[in-house]
Write a protein that binds this DNA or RNA. Structure first.
Length: 342
DNA sequence: AATGGTGTCAACCGCGACCTG
DNA sequence: TCAGGTCGCGGTTGACACCAT
């Protein structure tokens, strides 16, 4: 652990002196206007420090925090901030560490598996982001919360319905989640090819989320990159995933799903195929339903997906929504509804 | 090329829970 | 038991990137 942190500190310090997190983001670090801020309990406890920094973290601050934690460990954030000489609140240090600098933080798009898990767990627990994040190794509550707000709620808005409404939950259960399950299966099939190939960092990062240290170590070997700050790595990785043009077919197949958007763009026979499988599931024919959903995949490699029927049922029960019969289900979403989502 | 709208995500804030003396 | 300090969570904000016009 300590070695990893020291490695990372070396990467940050050596590769990016003075460079910004995002371009322009850290070039003029914000110094807290003390007059504007009411002193918090942490500030009050800080004694002589009347000038606390706010806003984006600089590389120097990151290095200081990383080095300090490598030496002394984490926790006691207010004391840590003072002892490390950081003009930050303990709260800010904690957030920076947990959401960004921690060695096991994954970056990159959510895989279909992860998206499925988020949808499922949210249906059970609601906005318990930290609890949900605990089930997704390497993902932070902040990241999951952002995903939910930007992706999921956007679609609810497009449908003119509340994200907690039955209409939207049904859409998730019968359309989005099964499709994600299919995508997850496809990713499992193709990811090994994508990972083992010589694909550029960005495409492989898209197929499999990388930790910050992993990306940083890759970037340090990538002479074409000018900006090697951890922030820029992350930003570039996530935003570039949709712009790559030379990936192998396998990598393309394993690329992060844009979930709903992509689902809507599919041919209508895909929808009816999924719907048919779900009808079998909901009618009790779990075996054939699963077979149809995963007819081309090796489901035994995906414990989470081995019994989609039970899982969908669980989702339904947790959401407090009864499973419709076949007729109701057919009526649930007409094709007009599907295309109107676009 | 310029501009405005939208999406994304790091960071901040307030508050309640927990801890400690 | 209580009060002050600290932590962690969920909601919100703001700045930048990207895209369409």
């Amino acid at each position: 652990m300590e070695m990893v942190l020291q490695q990372r500190a070396a990467v940050i310090g050596g590769g990016n002196a003075g460079a910004g997190c995002r371009p322009g983001h850290m070039t003029a670090p914000v110094v807290a206007a003390a007059a504007k801020q009411e002193p918090t309990e942490e500030q009050a406890g800080g004694g002589a420090e009347t000038e606390l920094r706010r806003g984006p973290w600089t590389v120097d601050e990151d290095l200081t925090l990383i080095n300090y934690i490598a030496e002394h460990g984490e926790g006691r954030w207010n004391a840590l901030a003072r002892a490390a000489g950081l003009k930050r609140t303990g709260k800010s240090c904690r957030l920076r560490w947990l959401n960004y600098l921690r060695p096991d933080v994954k970056r990159g798009d959510f895989t279909a598996d992860e998206q499925l898990l988020i949808l499922d767990l949210h249906s059970r627990w609601g906005n318990r982001w930290s609890k949900i994040a605990a089930q997704l190794p390497g993902r932070t509550d902040n990241e999951i919360k952002n995903y939910w707000r930007t992706r999921v709620q956007k679609h609810a808005k497009q449908l003119n319905c509340d994200v907690n409404s039955k209409r939207f939950k049904d859409a998730m259960r019968f359309l989005w989640m099964p499709r994600l399950a299919e995508r997850a299966a496809a990713q499992h099939n193709h990811s090994s090819a994508a990972i083992s190939g010589d694909d550029h960092l960005f495409s492989s990062a898209a197929a499999t989320a990388l930790t910050v240290p992993e990306m940083m170590m890759t970037m340090v070997n990538d002479s074409s990159s000018d900006d090697r700050s951890p922030c820029s790595v992350v930003t570039t990785t996530s935003s570039s995933s949709s712009h790559t043009s030379s990936e192998s077919t396998a990598a393309a197949a394993a690329a992060p799903v844009t979930d709903w958007d992509e689902m809507q763009g599919g041919a209508d026979h895909e929808y009816w195929s999924t719907a048919s499988a779900l009808q079998q599931l909901t009618a009790g024919d779990h075996h054939h339903g699963n077979q149809q959903l995963f007819q081309f995949q090796e489901v035994e490699d995906m414990p989470m997906l081995q019994d989609l029927s039970g899982w969908v049922q669980g989702f339904s029960e947790a959401a407090g929504v009864s499973m419709p019969d076949q007729t109701q289900q057919q009526q649930l979403w007409s094709l007009d509804d599907i295309w109107r989502m676009q």
